[in-house]
Amino acid sequence: MAVEIERKFLLVSEDWRKQVEKTLEMQQGYLSRDAQSSVRVRISGERADINIKSTRDGIYRLEYEYPIPMEDALELMKHVAHRPLIEKKRHILHVGRHCWEIDEFFGENQGLIVAEVELAARDEPYERPDWLGREVSTDARYYNSNLSKLPYKYWKDEK
């Protein structure tokens, strides 16, 4: 069984930008996006994947991801995926012994930036960098699948 334990945070400064080691451009389309599970197609560079996630609490998820042919991904994005598509840059950096992924959204979600860290256990300690703000791991509005339903630009608060 594939498991993902992830914590998600807002940011309080741009200081993280000085630590970025790598940046990837991504586009995601959701084929299914209900409250407890989602199926998405992601294109990042020359790679395409299909991903299935199921969550109960926003931190602990079952996750399965498999490569698919680029042609299939493009067709699914064009003809099957819900709109809007998720457009983002993923910035990768390390703090202590953990890899952080900072997603900077564009398009309908322009202005939203969140940091994520994957852990081996729910209670695993991790270093909290100064640029880390409020935790939003269990706030469903910040799930990418929900950002494709109600994009950030339409939120009335949290901006």
Rank of each mutant, 00 (worst) to 15 (best):
I102R: 04
H82K: 11
I113K: 08
E87I: 15
I92D: 07
G111F: 10
G96M: 02
E101S: 13
I92F: 11
G96K: 01
R83Q: 15
H82T: 06
I113N: 15
Q110M: 07
L93G: 02
E118D: 10
G107M: 04
K88E: 15
A121Q: 09
E108F: 07
I86D: 02
E116L: 01
E108V: 08
A121P: 02
H91A: 03
I113Q: 05
R122H: 06
R122Y: 05
F105R: 04
D103L: 08
I86R: 00
G111H: 13
A120F: 15
F106C: 06
R122G: 03
L85A: 05
G111L: 13
H82D: 10
R83M: 10
L119Y: 00
A115T: 01
E116Q: 10
R90A: 02
V117I: 08
C99K: 14
P84F: 14
R90S: 14
Q110E: 15
G96D: 04
R83S: 13
I113E: 05
E118P: 01
E108R: 14
E87K: 12
R122F: 14
L112E: 09
W100T: 00
C99P: 02
E116P: 07
I86W: 01
R83F: 08
I92V: 08
R122A: 11
C99A: 13
G107A: 10
K88R: 08
L85E: 11
H91T: 09
I102T: 11
E116I: 02
E118N: 09
K89P: 03
H91L: 04
N109M: 14
A115S: 08
R90Y: 10
N109P: 09
H98W: 14
L93I: 01
W100L: 01
E108Q: 06
E101N: 08
I86M: 12
E104L: 12
A120S: 11
H98E: 00
A120I: 07
G96T: 02
K89L: 14
G111Q: 15
H94F: 06
N109A: 01
L112G: 04
I113A: 13
E101M: 07
I86C: 12
F105A: 06
A121L: 10
A120H: 14
P84Q: 06
W100A: 00
C99N: 13
V114E: 11
Q110I: 15
E116C: 05
I92T: 11
H91M: 08
L85Y: 12
Q110G: 15
V114S: 05
G107L: 13
K88V: 12
V114N: 03
V117D: 00
E108K: 15
E101C: 05
L93D: 00
L93E: 00
A121R: 01
Q110L: 10
I92E: 02
